[in-house]
Nucleic acid binder design. Structure first.
Lengths: 261, 261
DNA sequence: CAATCTTGTTTCTCTATGCGGAACAACGCG
DNA sequence: CGCGTTGTTCCGCATAGAGAAACAAGATTG
């Protein structure tokens, strides 16, 4: 009856399926029909059909015992394709490795997408104390070092839009005031790197430096994350220095050339 | 009109979309509407709707210039979830790292899926001469070292089925005779590891050892791949020794305990 | 620089498709 | 051993989605 304004250009059944896929998270990697149906507000029969189809194509895997579902290997394959074709990943991988070998801290490559930073590559340190992050995770721009450093170099319309959407407080440290943010972004442009100190999650610090492509636009960032205890101000400064040089190298490989005048 | 026997339990439109996603490969990461429509034998309008929906949900990304499509970051996110939840990956990662550090050769974790080996994890060596492989890629069982070593420990009905499906020759070296294969599999069970010498692709050799889970079933393999020039018989033997010990360690972490009595 | 392919996008129309509700089956729990 | 769960199947009706074809917007051509 009251269907949502039937958009002639999209497929509602496909949307259902994609939403179903997005229900899976690292915390909840296994779901049953009813759970998914509830999350999406769809009938069990519909979800059942969707999942059967997804399973047939290997996008989802059904446990014969519990009749619950997990993501299937087909999505891994797609993920692999993306990885091998995102230039920023290809070019950055080895440099990240060197970084981890030298500092033994976790590093990421992040890119801007849809007013969020998305981690597209990750290299873990061997420390017993690790920060749980995962590929593809979207984080807000205003409370992460990668987000801020990317945002700092965006067009002011982007910055305005981020502010308009609201600077949601995630911890007591989150920057929630537009003016403070603008001021900080200007400082970041001067420094060439950004910090985040417990602004997204309590006790998690990070440092990030901007990556540019051949159009000179900042499209992503290299960022190191770790626990506050290890990430002292001095250490973060020293990490920043290396991250900046790595980010320049990656930018270079993406066709960016420093000011020629 | 002559629709395909409308299966009441699956969604044809969703299938179309999933097939569309599967059109993307590392070799062809960017596709236009018409290309996809041709590949799938669907009308342009249908594909257009599918792609628009996929794009809206971030599963695909549309280049504003060329109006062609690439995979989007949503699939990366799903891939990340799978990676962090496939026990075999989690447990294997560090061991693979050690292997790469020691031998500087590319290693994979592969699992059995749908009568094929699928690479679920990969660590590249730094050699300039590399073998192009990618995550999620399915390869036949009879002509890869990982495939053979997994197959060797499967129920004989699985082996029969593989043979029934045909031992497709990929190179002059591919084993195409059922008896030869059976004999080799029995040898592999004795050795505890398998080789492949240019059986899948000319000039590409590999070595693999089996990984078991707590049910004692062989569910995957650790495998090293490289160019024939570097992979001499002696070297492969030595790699095999290490791979076997790594595979045992992974199996152990998956709850497998060696024969008790 | 027009003529002509070849893209992608939109419109339209008709019917098979996919929706939800309800009946059914298969567990697991007390 | 029944009751509250699950997941699965059936069914009937409205509508979503398939393709043909018109349309628009670049490319490519000579």
């Amino acid at each position: 009856m009251e269907r949502q304004a039937a958009d002639y250009r999209t497929l509602s059944s496909l949307k259902n399926a994609l939403h179903a896929l997005k229900c899976f998270t690292p915390e909840e990697p296994e779901l049953g029909i009813t759970q998914i149906a509830d999350k999406l507000g769809l009938s069990k029969s519909t979800v059942h059909r969707v999942m059967t189809t997804l399973a047939e194509e290997g996008f989802v895997r059904r446990d014969e015992q519990t009749h619950r579902y997990r993501l299937g290997l087909s999505v891994l394959s797609l993920g692999g394709i993306i990885m091998s074709n995102l230039e920023i990943c290809r070019e950055g991988q080895h440099l990240l490795e060197e970084f981890v070998n030298r500092f033994d801290e976790t590093v990421h490559l992040a890119v801007l997408e849809d007013y969020a930073t998305v981690y597209v590559s990750k290299l873990e340190c061997k420390h017993p104390v690790q920060i749980a992050t995962h590929l593809g995770r979207k984080n807000p721009l205003h409370c992460t070092s990668s987000g801020k450093v990317i945002l700092a170099y965006q067009d002011s319309t982007v910055i305005d839009e981020v502010i308009r959407r609201g600077l949601r407080p995630m911890t007591p440290n989150t920057i929630t005031h537009p003016d403070t943010l603008r001021q900080l972004l200007s400082q970041i442009r001067k420094d060439g790197y950004a910090f985040s100190q417990s602004e997204l999650r309590e006790g998690v610090h990070s440092v990030a430096a901007p990556v540019r492509d051949y159009t000179r636009q900042v499209i992503g960032a290299v960022t190191a994350v770790g626990p506050a205890a290890r990430f002292t101000p001095e250490k973060m400064k020293s990490l920043a220095k290396t991250l900046v040089s790595i980010s320049k190298e990656i930018s270079h490989r993406l066709g960016y050339y420093e000011r020629v005048r």
